[in-house]
Design a protein around this nucleic acid. Structure first.
Lengths: 231, 231
DNA sequence: ATAGGGCTTTAACTTTCTTTAACGCTTATT
DNA sequence: AATAAGCGTTAAAGAAAGTTAAAGCCCTAT
């Protein structure tokens, strides 16, 4: 995997620092997504695949350590690097216990940050060359997100963009509720009545595709959204 | 490129420090040119080629940040390292926004300076060596961007300029969506209905050229653009 | 100047994808 | 139970994209 394919999720509440870091990392050919607190970062992490997390420890709403703990429940592998203003040993310890790979005390230079990211990636990226292949297993189905292909038992079916995007979101939140408004904002870019009805049509389509496996279900949570139930 | 070929432009108003730095760097086999303010440094930069800039932030007549801004208009690549007495975050930020690669707060040791220069050069020189290559690998194909040649297994095919430009853009965004309007603005210089249809024709052409490798795919993302998918 | 060849655009037709509409059913509220 | 809001499903209308062929354009060689 080349550097330019590596997706970084950056959680930093300081708008200024966050924007500059993102610009710098993007200039270094990473794909960086910036979120301004732990909650938004977690939502984003659930929504997409990331190869690396850079988390500010002190953030409003949800701090970096709490976020890391929740991320680790979903993914035990993804490298985490903390940015911390305090350089107290206790904090470092707590961070590393959660499976952090490194930390950096502010202020730091961009060069330093880059060097650490690359060091960690060298260490971890070795044994996963298939990292950017986003493939979900849903019951007896296999869903290739980038290729929009849903396959089972030799048969494979090509999904349209909207079908694929919706199924992707459901997969990222499997066995938990995907908010209707969240999906609408993410896929349709507008949470309105007609788009909601359009989304219903797509739910029906997906149910049809998945109906061959009775253990799979797209459940409606009335007034909230949908939930993909598997195994 | 060997170290002895690397030309450094040093802008430092403190005669004493400047001379010592130049002597040290020259001893380390760099070719160092010393200028005592931003204005003279800019004149020098315009006059000759430099591989690396070391700029003092506080200088008479023209300061380091202003100089960097003007340099960046001429050259977006050349590495810049700031020397700063103040260690205020604001200063750092302003510097990095201009595309600085690192900074060093006074007082610093010569070894430290050398280490940072070498770290930056390792990274940028690396980039340079595969930047001018401009050859993409797409599945079993190889695409020489500058020569407009798409080849596979001895066979090689010359692309027209529009074909090449479009494939280049798709390669730069491989495995992610290239916005239709972005491609139109960049290649056709105008995002209009007829150009969009023209672009569709070129997508068909490219698909034909690439069809021998079934792992490659140019996927349409309805209403958004196209995505080149490679393993 | 002009005829030919390669490249690009326009046109026309076909297919696919998305949205809208309609109608029936289910779930919450009072 | 009555009412309203939310959802399930299907069909159709509408918009975007796929494809092929012909027309237009621009250079170069004659």
């Amino acid at each position: 995997m080349e550097i330019k394919d590596i997706k970084i999720l950056l959680a930093e509440d300081d708008k200024n620092l966050g924007t500059v870091l993102k610009a710098y990392l993007d200039a270094k050919k990473f794909k960086t997504t910036l979120r301004v607190n732990g909650k938004e970062a977690l939502d984003e992490f659930k929504m997409d695949h990331y190869d690396f997390l850079i988390l500010d420890v002190m953030m409003p709403i949800k701090d970096g350590f709490t976020l890391a703990r929740e991320v680790r429940e979903l993914d035990k592998e993804v490298p985490i690097l903390f940015l911390t203003a305090k350089s107290l040993p206790e904090d470092k310890m707590e961070g590393f216990k959660l499976g952090a790979d490194d930390y950096l005390s502010k202020p730091f230079s961009m060069e330093e940050l880059l060097a650490r990211i690359e060091a960690i990636l060298r260490r971890t990226q070795m044994h996963k060359s298939n990292a950017n292949k986003e493939i979900f297993t849903i019951g007896k189905f296999s869903f290739d997100v980038t290729r929009h292909i849903l396959s089972a038992e030799g048969e494979s079916h090509k999904l349209t963009s909207k079908e694929a995007e919706l199924l992707k979101m459901l997969c990222h939140r499997k066995n938990e509720t995907l908010d209707r408004s969240e999906a609408l904002k993410h896929i349709w870019h507008d949470d309105s009545y007609f788009n909601a009805r359009s989304m219903d049509v797509y739910v029906t389509k997906l149910r049809k595709y998945l109906k061959d496996d009775p253990t799979i279900e797209i459940l409606n949570v009335h007034g909230v959204g949908f939930k993909l139930i598997t195994e």
